[in-house]
Design a protein around this nucleic acid. Structure first.
Lengths: 290, 290
DNA sequence: ATTCAAGTGAAGAAAATTTTTCAGTAAAGT
DNA sequence: ACTTTACTGAAAAATTTTCTTCACTTGAAT
């Protein structure tokens, strides 16, 4: 019954002529601060418009809703559509394939994960973390888990180019207590820990915290227990239509951080990057072109 | 009582530690489609999070609200602030930050990369590649380059769980010719090669092709020269506002492939996955819960 | 193994919201 | 002036929502 393609705002406008004095007063009140003005209880709305509750009930029925709750539900859907994305509405990602193809389903999920991560991210924390990563007076350690070791490796790789004094602590190894010996107060540790949180990682975080290290944690939406030791926590959503979790959100965050650190350190890192380029050219490790 | 300056989202995050399992489940559900997810009745919210209504009532009290209606009123105020405020907010990913913030610029670029990759992807090729990866009668080799070794590692890690006979050829090592000795006709090699294409990778591809191996290449939009030896080529766009390239598109493709292979091999891989789980439980390598 | 504490949801009680009824009021027509 | 008609809101009835109680489960601790 309540299903028409018009927005409630349009419906109100269109119906305006057929409305009575009190109803019109109500309609204006609703449009006043649309659409949030319609969110309270029927009583609240009535009081707000200075009409009685029956008037509200009658009017929404005139608009074609089965009752006030029906009206309000429609309003909520409108708000939802308005608040959530403008972007993901694109039809299919891989146009050759049907919507249900894994490529499209997976990508939908990832895009939604990205949006969710970004709406919850704390910009100040992000900036501070980048500053910590860029601060060459602090040694930098990177730790990953079973799955996240690839991410840790990726960060390590890039940081190593940008600055000296970067260490990748291979969590598989039993040697990590040795690394901890070198961790000083105010050094920075980036820890990756997603679900199936690892005991050894937690232990390491605890000990590092005791030594006064600054901890930056990249985890999933459920937040690894490491977060209680961490100075900065970033949660990427990792759920996708798969038996596995997705690391895309965390990689995106990581790359953005790397880009931000690069900007901050460009004065000092430029020399390193250029030296590296030169070494590659000398060793003919890479093809000169194509 | 319900007045604090924090947003409900922040309050949820902060309170997370003190929450119980069901409450946490609820909190995630609320953050899932925040803030509209909290607009329905307490019953609707409970069902949505698959918890009971008392759990909802208890949790909002823990957060400091006098009751559910109090909580919902606060939420409505937040929505109001968000909707009536500047309309420009819709566009940004990270809403706290301006459009020009690196987080938003970077994400824009990545989303655009993803779209471009997917519109150019060949579905048939994708399916055939997955079939090759799933075919346990063929040995599987994974090779990465300097930067892409993390991606290679990631694929290796997952494939190793799903099937036997997977090898990660560490490109840094000088030992890869030895691996090639074992490559038989119709074995599968996944090669990662993005710009600053590596000579050694090209050489390896050539020799593997000579031995009759099937080659799947993941590269960038400029296509590594390896493509002339490859049976299937996938190009991910990698340009972002950074001095570095982005691996996000390739990771997305990779994860989608892994999911597709998982589906295809579930009958046989299930046993492997479960055995692995059991081993983890035994070694108490991971935390039981939290 | 047994006890204990904590957490959870079903079910019922309490409170609220929504709908209906109905009498009063104002405007239009006779 | 009187009747008719339509509109409105107070109050009661019906419904829904929220809150509380309590028995059951689970995981931890002795």
């Amino acid at each position: 019954m309540s299903e028409q393609s018009d927005t409630i705002s349009e419906r109100l406008q269109n119906a305006m002529d057929g409305l009575t004095r009190a109803e019109r007063q109500l309609a204006y009140s609703l449009l006043e601060n649309y659409p949030v003005s319609g969110l309270g209880s029927i009583t609240a709305i009535a009081q707000n418009a200075k009409v009685s509750t029956p008037t509200v009930a009658r009017m929404v029925q005139k608009l074609g809703f089965s009752g006030f709750p029906d009206f309000q539900a429609a309003l909520r859907r409108e708000i939802e559509a308005r608040i959530s994305d403008p972007i993901s509405k694109y039809k299919s990602w891989a146009e050759q394939a049907p919507d249900e193809h894994i490529l499209n389903r997976f990508t939908d999920a990832v895009i939604s994960n990205i949006r969710q991560m970004l709406t919850h991210i704390d910009i100040t924390s992000f900036e501070e973390s980048c500053a910590l990563l860029a601060d060459q007076s602090r040694a930098l350690y990177v730790v990953g888990g079973r799955i996240t070791r690839s991410l840790a490796d990726y960060l390590f790789l890039h940081m190593q180019v940008l600055r000296p004094n970067v260490t990748h602590i291979q969590s598989i190894s039993n040697a990590w207590p040795h690394y901890l010996l070198d961790v000083n107060k105010d050094d920075v540790i980036v820890i990756f820990d997603v679900r199936r949180y690892e005991n050894s990682t937690l232990k390491l975080a605890e000990m590092a915290a005791e030594r006064g290290a600054r901890i930056i944690l990249l985890t999933d939406q459920w937040r690894s227990p490491v977060h209680s030791f961490a100075d900065h926590v970033f949660c990427g959503r990792i759920t996708v239509p798969s038996a596995w979790d997705s690391s895309v959100t965390l990689l995106l965050l990581l790359e953005t951080m790397i880009a931000a650190v690069q900007e901050r350190t460009w004065d000092s890192s430029r020399a390193r990057v250029e030296a590296l380029e030169e070494m590659f050219d000398r060793t003919r490790f890479f093809r000169k072109f194509t």
